[in-house]
Structures are given as C-alpha cells and as structure tokens.
C-alpha cells in the first residue's frame, strides 16, 4: 500500500529521559492508524514531531515522499489531547479565527463552518460564548476546526474523551467518512474497543520503543496463540468423549482469568492446536463423534494484546 508518512529511526531525548528511541513506522495512505501505548510512552512526542512542533534529535520523517517540511504543516490537522478555546470569544468567531490560521480564506471558512455546524446541529451556538458551552460541546467545535481545512493527514489524540456514547459514535462516523474521502488518520487513544472499531493499522509504543506494528487483522490473528473454540450439540460430556485422542490440548477455563479464553457456553470448549498439527484432523475427530455447531479461532481483543505486549508477554 502506498505510504503517506514514514518515520525512520526517530530518536528524541529530553533532559533526563529518552522520549523516543529509534522509532520507525509507516503509515499507509487512506488508513486509520492507531497509535497506542501506555501513558508516557512517547506518543505525544511522536505526534509533535510529525506536526513539526518539535524536531527529532536523530532520524527522519517522510511526508508524501519527501522529508517533512514547514510547507507540509497546512496539510495536517491536529486535535491535541489537551485542548482549549478562548473562553471569552464567541463560538463562530473563534472557529473562524482558527480556520483562518490554517490558511482558509474567510468566506470559504464561513461556508464550510456553516455546513459543519448544520451537520452537528449546533447552528444556534454561533453567537454563544465558549464559556457557556459544556466540555463535550466545546470538543465538537474543536473537532470541526481540526478537519475544516480538509488536510491530507488528520491526527486525533483521544478524540472521544468527554463525549457521551451517542456523540462519540457520531464522531466515529465522521472520522471514517473523512477517511473514505481520502484523508489519512492517526488515532491515538487508550480506548481499545474504539481502536478495534475504527483502526486498520496500529503501532504500539512502549517505553520509547515501537514494540508492535502492523495491520490490525494480522496482529490479532498472529497473536491468537492457536486457540480454537468448539461447540457441539449435547453438552460438554459428549465433546470431551469425542476429543479423546485428538492432537490437541483442552484448556480449562479456570486456568486463566482472561475473559477471551473463558467458556461462552456449557457445550463449548477451548482447545489449543499446536502449529504442527493439522486442524482438519481435529475437526474430523470431533465431527465423527458429535454433532458440531461451531468451530472458530479465538482472536484476542486489542485490550488483551495491549496488556500482554506492555507486560512483555507477547
């Protein structure tokens, strides 16, 4: 896939600590790219480097095939995690101000703002002061301002914080719609379920290093650990009988407290089939002695992978 951003061996040191240590990653054009990691891992520093707010000590960032330059900044829209608005300015006036700073001519900015305000149903806020808005309302305005100039690259840092589920969903739809229109999105969050919903690629940064990178589907599959769930008619006894002699291990639900590994029904079991065994053999054995309702690979949640990766147990 064609790349929009390539980060090559980027290192950034602050007095006393290394924020990024030789981080490399590639962000495909048109992807929703999840940038994950525990607090203090270096995500914000990486985002600031991509935004040219700060410069790396070593390494290069490539944007659209050339080294990132100041001319690229107007092509980036950034919604920081810590964000604020001028409290004493009116909403519309303020949105216009930020849009003009992004280089939009005034008339065009007004046209687009009207459009977005209609879309979010907030037209009547135009002449309200920001201090009258709730946190979620202010976030909506900030979101609009971030995407208004239709940049090639959008960076969202915890975009859903402060939103109720309905508005979070609205925002999610808008982010995906922007992606469909051709924007590339970098999405930094701790909320793993939203990562599963919107991201197609991720990078996991821990302790200043890139510890996991790739497409979300590949990562989840490759960290499946060859665990399968099988369900038959007639309960677990029949299944246990059928499995006797099959080339697999039956996993006891009591072995781990991991939610993904727990049994979902009394007629189901989890199995571990080693890599060198043929899955068909196991399926055949079960099939011969019980009536099978389902057989599927257990794909771990991002939450799971995140916790295991950060703990170094991947």
């Amino acid at each position: 896939m064609e790349e929009l951003i390539r980060v090559e061996n980027v290192t950034k040191t602050f007095v006393g600590h290394t924020a990024l240590d030789g981080v490399s990653l590639t962000i495909p054009r048109g992807a929703v790219y999840g940038l994950l990691g525990p607090n203090g891992a270096g995500k914000t520093t990486l985002i600031r480097i991509i935004n040219r707010i700060t410069a790396p000590d070593r390494g290069t960032v490539w944007f659209d095939g050339h080294p990132l330059s100041p001319a690229d900044v107007p092509n980036i829209g950034y919604l920081p995690e810590e964000r604020g608005l001028y409290k004493n300015m009116k909403v519309g006036e303020q949105a216009l101000y930020f849009s003009q700073l992004k280089g939009l001519p005034r008339a065009e900015a007004v046209r687009r703002l009207r459009h977005w305000f209609m879309k979010f149903g907030i037209e009547e806020w135009w002449n309200k002061k920001v201090s009258e808005l709730s946190k979620g309302m202010a976030q909506k305005v900030q979101f609009i301002v971030t995407v208004l100039h239709e940049p090639k690259l959008l960076i969202f840092d915890e975009p859903f914080s402060g939103f109720d589920p309905i508005n979070a969903n609205l925002l999610k739809q808008e982010i995906l719609a922007l992606r469909d229109k051709g924007a590339t999105v970098i999405f930094s969050t701790h909320n793993m379920s939203s990562v599963e919903e919107v991201c197609d690629h991720i990078t996991l940064i821990n302790k200043s290093k890139n510890i996991l990178s790739g497409s979300l589907a590949d990562i989840r599959r490759s960290h499946g650990g060859n665990i399968f769930e099988v369900e038959v008619r007639g309960g677990r006894e029949a299944l246990l009988k059928a499995l006797a002699g099959a080339p697999c291990t039956i996993l006891d639900s009591t072995l781990g407290d991991d939610e993904a590994l727990s049994l979902s029904s009394p007629s189901a079991l989890k199995l571990h089939i080693p890599n060198d065994e043929d899955i068909r053999d196991v399926v055949n054995i079960i099939n011969n002695s019980a009536s099978m309702r389902s057989f599927r690979e257990v794909i771990p949640s991002m939450n799971d992978i995140f916790i295991r990766a950060v703990a170094g147990k991947l």
């Binding site: 604020g84 001028y86 992004k102």
Partner: peptide, 12 residues
C-alpha cells in the same frame, strides 16, 4: 493554562 496554545501550535 487554557490549552489554547496546544491547539494553536499545530498551525502556527
């Protein structure tokens, strides 16, 4: 302290 700065520095 308002964090307006954070929003601004990406464009200015």
């Amino acid at each position: 302290s308002n964090k307006v700065m954070e929003v601004m520095v990406s464009s200015v």
